[in-house]
Write a protein that binds this DNA or RNA. Structure first.
Lengths: 227, 227
DNA sequence: TTCATACTTCGACCGTAACCGAAGCATCTT
DNA sequence: AAGATGCTTCGGTTACGGTCGAAGTATGAA
């Protein structure tokens, strides 16, 4: 009865709408200030401050002082992963706050999910990898093949350097707008970084949307043809 | 702001101590009646009934009427997996309700985690598989090797029949008492079933503990030698 | 039919926590 | 030094949800 981990503590932290909004905003992957998070949650800064300290005590958020600002981020990849899991579960039960998927078509098309690509383009990328045998999919687990390693090498992505024992290379993440899986893990992160660094796309200022340039979009679509 | 899955709804459901206790009790994998769950949570049946209907509406629990009883179970494997994830996260942040791990040594040694083996023995089993190359571990993802398939075949476990596209064959699950991973997925389930069916062990009546017989324990330990 | 068991619904109580205004610190600017 | 900005702490209000007793429904037993 009184054994084990304190599920309720974690659940409660995720269980308040204001906190959930803040965490969703932080899924964008970038550090945000207390004021920005207050706005994202639709509450005053006082209220936000109280929420943020609770989330920090709970080990979900980390803060970094910089001048007179305090930047908050998800504490680590595990926190992001858990958040993804909860989002996926909620979506799978049809618990959507607004209606099916993002209203904004740009968000539906391509957006950031913590540190990797989600939305139509994210799902398409993983499908394409699987279709050509670069990644093998076993229901939920994803495994990189030798072919895949070689292909990514020609793109300038060194798969070996992405291998870590703290975080998987390939991981599937349920996309709540597409209701299918997209690619997470260190490879998902590296690929998104690759697109941004090479000017194929840039991040929207206001939202989690990823905006492709015409040229970048052309390259992306030819690299990941639809199944 | 109003986009996406309703995290808060799910969080709230997990965020009440009474509900968390009920869900923890259901991690034992067997169906329980409303009265049993009320007792597990330490509340009256009225209160329990209210909680149970909320959990059912949220898609976390399923109920099955049988005579004048109502048996509740976790809705599906996804619900169990999410629960495991939250437990693992809570444990990783040190949010334990009582103290480090289960007080009961039997629970610490071997217990049921939804439908597979957890605790010292669960961790030991996975370690042993990995050490001898039956399963390959890539940080978080687990993959079965050809050697592993052959070995399990000699045990009388047909790996091919366990392959599903709804649930992975091998999956790592963070063990909150050992703070290491044990084996989940359809294989984890099949192995536990194998131990129980062949009389190596039986389930405790009162708790989630798995009690090995002297003979079963001997077989288990020789099959999965410590690393 | 009558009684017992298993569970749900109703109604009322109560505690907690979410919320905001105001005041208090800390840091940067001028 | 004085003002502005970013954030936290304090105090008080309010609302929501967890709780249980009592009554109501359904199934099974006598």
């Amino acid at each position: 009865m009184k054994e084990g981990p304190d599920i309720a503590r974690i659940g409660m932290l995720f269980g308040d709408p204001a906190r959930a909004n803040m965490l969703t905003a932080l899924m964008g992957g970038q550090a945000l200030t207390a004021t920005e998070l207050a706005q994202a949650a639709g509450v005053t800064v006082q209220t936000a401050s109280s929420h943020l300290s609770k989330l920090e005590d709970g080990g979900i958020l980390a803060q970094r002082k910089q001048g007179r600002h305090r930047y908050f981020t998800l504490a680590d990849a595990a926190a992001g992963t858990l958040l993804e899991n909860i989002m996926g579960f909620a979506a799978s039960r049809g618990h959507l706050r607004h209606r099916p998927g993002p209203k904004d078509p740009a968000l539906r098309k391509a957006r950031v999910c913590y540190d990797h690509l989600a939305g139509d383009y994210g799902v398409r990328m993983l499908d394409s990898f699987v279709a050509r045998g670069a990644i093998e999919s076993d229901g939920e687990n994803l495994t990189m093949t030798e072919d895949g390693r070689a292909e990514l090498g020609t793109l300038g992505i060194d798969v070996a350097s992405l291998t870590s024992n703290r975080r998987p290379l390939c991981k599937s993440c349920l996309d709540w707008s597409e209701r299918r899986s997209h690619l997470a893990g260190t490879l998902g992160k590296a690929l998104l970084a690759h697109f941004l660094e090479n000017g194929w796309a840039r991040r929207s200022e206001e939202s989690r949307a990823v905006l492709f340039t015409p040229d970048g979009e052309r390259k992306f679509l030819s690299l990941f043809p639809a199944g």
